[in-house]
Amino acid sequence: MTEAIAPSPIRVFVVEDQTKILKNQLRLLESNQDITIVGTALSGEAALEEVPRVTPDVLLLDLGLPRMSGIDVTREVKARWPQVEILIFTIFDEEDKVLEAVKAGASGYLLKGTPADKIIEAIKEVRAGGTVIQPSLARRLLRHFRVEPDSSPVPTEPVASPPAPAAPETPAASEASEPLLKPLSNRETELLQLIAKGVSNSEAARLLNLSKATIRTHLEHIYRKLEVTNRVEAVTEGIRKGLISV
Rank of each mutant, 00 (worst) to 15 (best):
T170N: 05
I86S: 12
P149Y: 09
G64E: 13
L87K: 02
L192F: 01
E100N: 05
E175S: 09
F89G: 05
E30P: 00
I91D: 11
L142W: 00
E169V: 15
V228Q: 03
P7Q: 14
S43L: 04
S174M: 12
P163A: 15
E100W: 04
L87Q: 03
P153A: 08
S211E: 08
E85N: 12
L87F: 01
P165F: 05
L243I: 15
T236C: 07
P9C: 12
S31W: 04
T214Y: 06
V232P: 04
A41I: 04
P149H: 09
L59Y: 00
I244C: 09
V15P: 06
E3R: 05
E95V: 14
I10R: 14
T229W: 02
I37N: 04
D17C: 10
T156F: 03
V246A: 06
A166C: 09
T90Y: 04
V235E: 05
V54G: 12
G108V: 02
L207F: 03
S161Q: 12
R127Y: 10
E148S: 06
A166L: 10
Q18A: 09
R80S: 10
K241D: 11
E227D: 14
K97I: 01
V38F: 00
L61W: 07
Y109N: 06
G105S: 06
Q134C: 10
A167E: 15
R231H: 14
P158G: 08
Q193R: 13
S107Y: 04
R231N: 15
E100V: 03
I120H: 01
E50P: 02
R187Q: 13
D96P: 01
K182G: 02
A173R: 03
L192I: 08
T229C: 03
E121I: 01
V73T: 07
P7K: 03
S174G: 13
D57N: 15
A205L: 06
Y223I: 01
G242A: 11
G39I: 10
K212V: 11
A213M: 08
N186R: 06
R75M: 07
F13I: 08
V98N: 12
D117A: 07
I119C: 14
P66S: 04
D96N: 15
E188H: 00
G39V: 07
K225N: 04
A79C: 06
L99Y: 13
A4R: 10
S174T: 12
E188P: 00
G238A: 00
V147M: 11
K197T: 14
S177W: 06
T2N: 10
I119F: 10
G108S: 04
I120N: 02
E30T: 09
R67T: 12
V58M: 09
D96Q: 12
K124P: 01
L59K: 05
S107E: 13
I86R: 08
V154G: 02
L42P: 02
I88M: 15
M1I: 08
P153I: 08
P171S: 08
I215H: 02
V235W: 01
T19G: 07
T236Y: 01
G105N: 03
A160Q: 13
K103R: 15
E45L: 08
T229V: 12
P162N: 07
P165H: 06
A173Q: 09
P171A: 11
S69K: 12
K225V: 03
P9T: 07
